[in-house]
Amino acid sequence: MTAIVLRLVAVASLMFALLAAEFAATFVFSGWGRGGVAIIAITMAAVAAFGFMDLHQEDVTVWLFAAAAVLWLTILLGLGSLDPFTRSLFPTNSMTP
């Protein structure tokens, strides 16, 4: 019991440390930039999945569903982002009435 609670305390502490790192990436270490913030956010989600949701203790079916979620999101966000990131916008002359 104590070991489980200690592990949960460690997970929560890690989450708060990552939250602090997110702030540092935003306000202190400008070199990290937005990419750093995004990477830390995804890391926090992974820590919650493994630390609080105990994904590592589940069987292969659960892993399959979790992997499917990541794959579907990657396809959605990846292919969905291709349009705005690859489209060239040319300025036009617009007449305002």
Partner: peptide, 30 residues
């Protein structure tokens, strides 16, 4: 095991449910 697998499958669909909202953020900000 069936109940746990079932909720994980539901959560996978929930991830897809929120996915377009994240995509709209990418579109709108870009």
């Amino acid at each position: 095991e069936t109940a746990i697998s079932g909720i994980w499958l539901f959560l996978a669909t929930e991830a897809l449910f929120f996915g377009p909202i994240f995509l709209s953020w990418i579109f709108a900000r870009h």
